[in-house]
């Protein structure tokens, strides 16, 4: 047997081993989702009994869509998903715009106190939301709003109270700053020499070159907003404005309806998966480029 053949066989074995490992790792990540989907088709008692065996991951036994029908009866799922998607999407869109502008100002514009302000912004990352929740609640409860009824005070029970406080985001700003810093200044200088305003530089030069960081910031923000629980719990006192995570609690009664819980979770996971799949390629590029992990 020649050395080349041995090397070829070893290389093939290495590839096979790599695939085995990757498959194993993939299964670890896929199993919870499979468990959720499969369990959503089973009655409660069977679901609980199956958790001790591999049957938990298999659509076997008494399989039906009953849990989905009951889940829709128990809670206004469509309303919750609509609320979450609306609040999350608007926050992401406004957040991308505002935070990227901030990142641009911090990384490419020269102004006094820039480093100090950036340090302060980044320092807010270590402040847990729980510590500012109550002061924030007091604040939004006194804010004015101009609506069909004229000027009113207090933002509770509205969409805006779930959106506005979360548009500015230190993590997103940090991501944009890090990404923009690596863009060559020469491109910006060239644009400026050609007569572009700073606004045009941002819009025509920076944004087109920054797809991956926009995707990353969008996904991270989307997940944070979609999973938000404490704040909407405090400010959305009416069912009309409740998002999916508060809605999940509708299923935890004295006797928990586990099958319905799984059906509900399967339904509310759909928007997240769709959003991730839309931005998947750019997200992976961004991670590969910056080493940022979600």
């Amino acid at each position: 047997m020649s050395a080349r053949m041995v090397r070829g066989r070893n290389a093939r074995a290495g590839v096979a081993w790599r695939y085995v490992m990757l498959t194993a790792v993939a299964l670890v990540f896929v199993f919870p989702v499979v468990f959720m989907l499969v369990s959503s088709l089973k009655p409660d008692l069977q679901l609980l009994r199956d958790t001790g065996s591999l049957r938990a991951f298999l659509p076997v036994g008494d399989i039906s869509l009953d849990n989905y029908a009951k889940a829709f009866q128990r809670a206004p799922i469509g309303r919750f998903v609509y609320n979450s998607v609306l609040v999350t999407s608007l926050t992401v869109v406004f957040g991308l715009f505002l935070n990227s502008l901030a990142g641009f100002a911090f990384s490419k514009l020269r102004w006094r106190g820039r480093s100090i302000v950036l340090a302060v912004v980044i320092a807010t990352l270590i402040v847990p939301f729980e510590t500012i929740a109550v002061p924030l609640l007091m604040m939004v409860n006194t804010l004015p709003w101009l609506g069909p009824d004229g000027v009113t005070f207090g933002w509770l029970n509205s969409y805006r109270v779930q959106i506005v406080p979360f548009i500015a985001d230190a993590l997103s700003i940090f991501l944009f700053v890090q990404f923009f810093k690596d863009l060559p200044d020469e491109i910006i200088e060239a644009a400026r020499i050609d007569g572009a305003s700073w606004w045009q530089v941002y819009l025509r030069v920076i944004v087109p070159l920054s797809g991956p960081v926009f995707a990353t910031a969008a996904i991270l923000k989307f997940l944070a907003m979609y999973n938000m629980y404490l704040w909407p719990l405090m400010v959305a006192q009416g069912e009309t404005y409740r998002p999916v995570m508060v809605g999940l609690q509708y299923f935890f009664q004295l006797n928990v309806a586990w099958g319905e819980v799984m059906a509900y979770l399967s339904l509310i996971t759909v928007p997240v998966l769709v959003f991730y799949l839309l931005l998947q390629r750019a997200f992976i590029e961004s991670i590969a480029a910056s080493g940022v992990k979600g």
Binding site: L137, M234, Q249
Partner: peptide, 21 residues
């Protein structure tokens, strides 16, 4: 009537008390 899920109820009442609602 305004209904709350049980697990979310107490924090909601406390928040409402803090905000005078």
């Amino acid at each position: 009537l305004e209904e709350f899920p049980q697990i979310a109820y107490n924090p909601s009442v406390v928040a409402a008390a803090l905000s005078g609602n």
